[in-house]
């Protein structure tokens, strides 16, 4: 087995593979987002986001990405999309909203891009 088999960072355009390295960076952020499975946690977060960041020990980049509700920044700060989806859910953002945000498209244009993939 070649060492390259373990290299998860060979670039795939527009893609960050969530591996051990990213998991280490993002643990606090992902743990906070995982907590949002609970309605009580979601309410607690909305009542005071800054206090909620502190409770989970987010670093400044993670806090700022959350304040900005910016998915690409959250990914760069170690966020995993499955947990980030729970954060997005708090703000009623679905996968097309998130997709549009990350690609810099309007939601309608993003939906059209998806539809065209079937042509």
């Amino acid at each position: 087995m070649e060492f390259e088999d373990f290299d998860h960072h060979t670039p795939i355009e527009g893609t960050t593979l969530f591996d051990g390295e990213m998991a280490m960076i993002g643990y606090a952020l992902n743990k906070m987002c995982y907590s949002f499975n609970s309605a009580e946690a979601r309410e607690q977060y909305l009542a005071n986001p800054e206090a909620y960041f502190e409770k989970f020990g987010l670093n400044e980049a993670q806090k700022q990405a959350c304040r900005n509700k910016n998915v690409l920044e959250m990914i760069a700060a170690g966020g995993n999309i499955y947990y980030l989806a729970k954060f997005a859910g708090i703000y009623k953002l679905n996968m097309q909203d998130i997709g549009a945000q990350q690609t810099g498209m309007s939601v309608e244009d993003f939906k059209e891009k998806l539809r065209k993939a079937g042509d």
Binding site: I12, G14, V71, I75, A85, M95, Q102, T103, L114
Partner: peptide, 13 residues
Amino acid sequence: HQLDGERAGFINK
């Protein structure tokens, strides 16, 4: 499918 990153929305029929 791809949900995350600048490549979000990628589908390969």
